[in-house]
Design a protein around this nucleic acid. Structure first.
Length: 584
RNA sequence: GUCCCUGUAGCAUAAUGGAUAAUGCACUGGCCUCCUAAGCCGGAGACUCUAGGUUCAAUUCCUAGCAGGGAUACCA
């Protein structure tokens, strides 16, 4: 409909240009918009105000000219010029009746927009380090990322969902050592657990299964392990040196094969846990991409080589540096450390290199706001590799600060102090949690008060929307209980003439526009807001009118309307990953 | 210091540069003999942080402040 009206104005513009009312060169990016208020009709166009200057006419005068040249349309019943020069258009009821038929014909596919035109996009989100369970901070990225992926799918993008697994590097060794030391405690040793180790309870669980599988075969006495290990921080030493020495000791004592076992036990069990957790949260991936494959496949080496050949690297103090400052970064960055190890950044370059080579039109990364400093350097590397950095969009999700009542909770994976996503789901429920996360735009800081989330769960707006869906389901149950029929073809849609029905029809018609706007802005929260409005319009209607009336043509019409509402609620909730219950 | 995000009713938020700034919670007065009261109707509550600028039009864009949060490794 919006398109249709836009076309009408384009034709009118051509007509007035031909009559030299405005100059031929005058081009203008005018808009056809939904009005805020029904008194301004259904759609408004701002073209007259934009053209007024170049036409040297008062906007309202010009608007009159445009209106007289507007081709007739069966859908438009009235045109008014209002305010500073808006052209307001009033639609005929028929224009809205087609919406109901359209929704009921398309069902689950209603609302699909073509703006993505099948373009492929790799969307990477969550990608939490596999050193512990997901906590509520990750939940926001998970909810936002999966909702955005769903939204873009509905907008006809070809979406590929990916989780980047940081399974290389020192932190994974620290994890392995943490598991091993807990295992040794299960063997009966008394271990001074390192300050820098992972102290969460989940480490015990992994150690226990390691112990079940390997019995005491990985056992070494404490005295032997701690021989020549520099002191930990609580003994006045350096906790980093302490844990690094422990890692070396573990590798030496266990040997490569046994160490691998411990290492794998740690990462596999955590990844498995993360995967399950996300699935239960309604998040599915097409691929779990392991950082370690980038070194085994030589991708890191290849990428660095390519940078070097292009002259974008140099050696200094034993390290290999990337001249990222020449590409907008604030300083140069190390790729290969003095000790010969690749930096995390080197893997990251290789990972993006890999993704760009896969031929996807676009990459989207969803990162926590703490990574914003990374944006420039990653984009710099893409440019330096000869690719277009615009192919990558990085969306930052601001932190969720967690409170329990007044108390602010500090979250740290290392110390084992955090509220897990799983606990959150169990406390507030999956639907409410997802709704809570996707209610606000991603750049907005989020104070997540657990007490509030729990206590408000009963009047959480998510139930308001779900209830609308369930209520409609209930009406149709009543229908069959009373042995009545419903058939769209027998509906006289012209009977939908109350203001409540008009409001609902307008809101329904706005759904496709909402999808497009939300997809364009990467903003699933707009769907959330929309659904709230739709549910509200429905609840109002529900209380104002009876649907199961005697008169058949009217009954069929009203039932068609609410069936359409239910369908749109279902489609919208699906994007958000929230269930649409039949009964509540 | 530099960089990023945010300042909107008591609270939490919304509003592709458009008209009288929207929603929920909290507050307040009503509505179940009626398709689910997890609902509805009414009331009250805002100089959209400040000062400039661009524009016919600014919550939105630009500049400078002020306030809150975050980032600033040869860590991952």
């Amino acid at each position: 409909m919006k398109q249709h009206i836009y076309q009408l104005f384009t034709q009118a513009l051509v007509a007035i240009k031909n009559k030299n009312i405005v100059t031929m060169e005058a081009t203008v990016d005018y808009r056809v918009e939904r009005t805020k208020d029904a008194q301004y009709g259904d759609f408004a166009c701002n073209i007259a105000m934009l053209l007024a200057k170049s036409a040297r006419m008062a906007p309202r005068k010009l608007a009159e000219q445009i209106v007289t040249h507007l081709p007739p349309s069966e859908f438009i019943t009235k045109i008014e010029i209002a305010g500073p020069g808006f052209i307001n258009l009033f639609l005929s009821p028929q224009a809205y009746h087609t919406v109901i038929k359209d929704i009921l014909a398309k069902n689950d596919t209603y609302g699909i927009s073509q703006i993505g035109a099948g373009k492929s996009v790799i969307i990477e989100f969550v990608s939490a380090n596999p050193t512990g369970p997901l906590h509520v901070g990750h939940g926001r990225g998970a909810a936002y990322g999966s909702a955005l992926a769903n939204l873009l799918t509905v907008a006809s993008f070809n979406v590929f969902r990916e989780y980047y697994v940081n399974d290389a590097g020192r932190q994974m060794d620290i994890l392995a050592v943490s598991v091993w030391l807990r295992y040794l405690e299960l063997c009966g040793e008394t271990i001074p657990f390192p300050a820098n180790g992972y102290q969460g309870d989940y480490i015990w669980d992994i150690a226990a299964s390691l112990h079940r599988e390997h019995k005491d075969t990985l056992y070494y006495p404490t005295a032997q392990i701690y021989e020549q290990i520099p002191p930990d921080s609580d003994a006045g030493g350096d906790k980093e040196k302490h844990i690094d020495a422990l890692i070396q000791q573990a590798k030496k004592l266990l040997g490569e094969v046994a160490y691998r076992h411990v290492f794998r036990e740690g990462i596999d069990s955590i990844l498995n846990d993360i995967n399950q957790d996300l699935q239960q949260f309604g998040v599915e991936y097409d691929q779990w991409f392991r950082e370690s494959t980038l070194t085994t496949s030589q991708t890191v080496q290849t990428a660095i080589e390519q940078l070097t050949q292009a002259g974008h690297t140099y050696r200094q103090e034993g390290a290999l540096w990337f001249r990222s400052s020449q590409f907008g970064d604030e300083k140069d960055r190390v790729l290969i450390r003095e000790n010969g190890q690749f930096t995390y950044f080197a893997s990251d370059i290789a990972y993006h290199f890999n993704k760009l080579k896969r031929g996807s039109a676009h990459l989207i990364n969803i990162w926590g706001a703490d990574h914003h400093g990374y944006i420039e350097r990653v984009k710099a590397s893409i440019t330096a590799l000869g690719e277009n950095a615009e192919r990558l969009t990085i969306l930052l999700v601001q932190f969720a600060t967690l409170y329990r009542g007044q108390e602010r909770l500090q979250m740290s994976t290392r110390s084992g102090q955090f509220v897990t996503l799983r606990e959150l789901r169990e406390e507030v429920g999956c639907d409410a949690a997802r709704f809570f996360y996707t209610q606000r735009k991603s750049e907005q800081h989020l104070d997540f008060d657990l007490e509030l989330a729990k206590s408000q769960s009963i009047d959480n707006p998510v139930y308001y929307i779900q209830y609308a869906h369930a209520r409609i389901a209930s009406v149709f149950r009543q229908l069959s209980d009373r042995q009545l029929q419903w058939d769209v073809k027998q509906a006289d849609l012209t009977r939908l003439d109350t203001s409540h029905e008009y409001n609902l029809l307008v809101t329904l018609a706005r759904y496709s526009e909402t999808i497009e706007n939300a997809a364009h802005a990467y903003a699933p929260h707009q769907i959330t807001n929309y659904l709230q409005t739709l549910a509200q319009d429905f609840h109002t209607y529900y209380n104002a009118h009876t649907f199961l009336v005697e008169e058949e043509a009217l009954r069929h019409a009203r039932l068609s309307l609410i069936a359409a509402v239910q369908q749109v609620l279902r489609n919208g909730l699906k994007i958000l990953g929230i269930s649409a219950p039949e009964v509540m």
